[in-house]
Design a protein around this nucleic acid. Structure first.
Lengths: 249, 249
DNA sequence: CGAACCTTTGAAGTGACTCAATGCGTGTGG
DNA sequence: CCACACGCATTGAGTCACTTCAAAGGTTCG
């Protein structure tokens, strides 16, 4: 039987909120044991698969994408350790985007039925789910602003900063060296540019001394200046928990 | 004292879910009586005002915007009757966008503390709030795709269809004539184009016989073809409620 | 009747795209 | 162990969607 340390939730939820023993134990029952998914695995496919569960990321990388009419692709979300994947399917029966494992990941499946119990028994955890979902909402509006209203250089800078920023949530001693696990075409699909232009903008960022590149690893050399270029606002430090219902002991 | 018909929730929540008497009564206590806000009113300002309440829209129009480094503006969300405004502030203490009343609106304030009670006492309604929030996330990813990966004509078409689609949620007998309540500059800020180009794309849509314009009212002449041009997917019909906890009678 | 705001149109400039070719690294089958 | 294929990064050149700048026409309102 799996111990508490095997839970997919402990990392991130515990970061935002000190979970009680009762909460931890109940979560262990509600979520399934972590399973390993290799890179390339499709968790569910847009407009095709039933979306009857969330997945909590213990480690690894995933992304949500959608196919365009012209055969192109858009990357809608990036998912890191601690993220809850699949929340936007909650109001639907069929998956509204395709979720792909980008880098070998350990995931806990969290069936819809567990969500029912969670909301019934643990209002405080339900509030936390709600907050985390709204955090995703904010991340989306930030990208909307970046993609809709800034040039290529800013968009790429913004993406780099968002990735580092989110990795730091679960990894405090994270430096300024990021392995992107994305091709330049992926980056383009995420920020709304072609891979050719992504290449030129990455070079430009490097030429300006803001970043350094080695393969698909990026080192941020001047984070302050990059933040200015990208008009980036940090948002993932903490969440407001004052209004949360009391925990079940 | 205000009757049930005065509640800001009945319209939309009742559309998705048959509320019980107990739920309706409790909601009436939790939400404040509707108040009228005239066009131009700023509910709260980005990075400035405390965000200690949600607002439920009974009637009228609002939008959420953010100011850019270069003085520009991005419209992040449009809010219609039945919407819950301010959810993205839930994880924060300070407002993360500016919410402005676009057209005289009747709003019910829903303080954060009411949210606490809602999650404690009415898990089913909490689930509904969660679902509605996730629906907003989906709307954002749809716009992300539209803005990041399609041309001006599609973006405008997509916006027009989203507006009509969302107005239909609370107004079944809504035709194909939409009063936008947006200037062409507003539209540009919403879809990531300049007002000049918005003008040309609107003309183009009209020239192609897809729409007809009178002032800021748009009549959709060929909705099927417009959907093709815009690559639009309808999403606001209904939400999945099977997993919701049982209602408190 | 003028001011303010919005829409519309023209003309020129540019950021990003498309097309195309080259190089590079890695894995694989002969 | 080499040859080749394949995916990815890089670079150049030409083109285009959208921008910027500028000005004129409409509408509303005090």
């Amino acid at each position: 039987m799996s111990g508490v340390s095997d839970s997919c939730f402990i990392n991130k939820l515990d970061h935002y909120l000190q979970l009680t023993e009762r909460e931890k134990l109940d979560l262990l029952v509600l979520e399934e044991s972590p399973q390993v998914y290799e890179a390339g695995t499709v968790l569910y496919a847009e407009d095709k698969d039933e979306a009857d569960a969330l997945y909590i990321v213990q480690s690894g990388r995933l992304h949500a994408s959608t196919v365009l009419a012209d055969g192109g692709r858009a990357l809608l979300k990036l998912h890191f350790a601690g993220d809850i994947v699949g929340t936007s399917n909650i109001p639907f029966t069929t998956a509204i985007s395709t979720v792909t494992v980008v880098r070998e990941a350990r995931l806990c499946r969290f069936p819809r039925s567990s969500l029912t119990t969670l909301f019934e028994v643990h209002p405080r955890l339900a509030a936390l789910f709600y907050s985390v979902g709204m955090l995703e909402n904010v991340s989306l509006t930030d990208r909307l602003r970046s993609i809709g209203r800034t040039d290529g250089l800013s968009r790429i800078g913004s993406l780099l900063l968002e990735i580092t920023s989110r990795l730091r949530v679960t990894n405090k001693d994270f430096g300024n060296e990021v392995e992107l696990h994305m091709t330049q075409a992926d980056i383009g699909d995420a920020v709304g540019l072609t891979h050719v232009h992504v290449n030129r903008m990455l070079r430009e960022l490097a030429d300006q001394g803001l970043i350094e590149r080695t393969g698909s690893t990026v080192t941020i050399l001047d984070e302050d200046r990059l933040r200015e270029v990208a008009h980036f606002t940090e948002r993932y430090h903490r969440i407001e928990t004052d209004w949360f219902p009391a925990a079940k002991e």
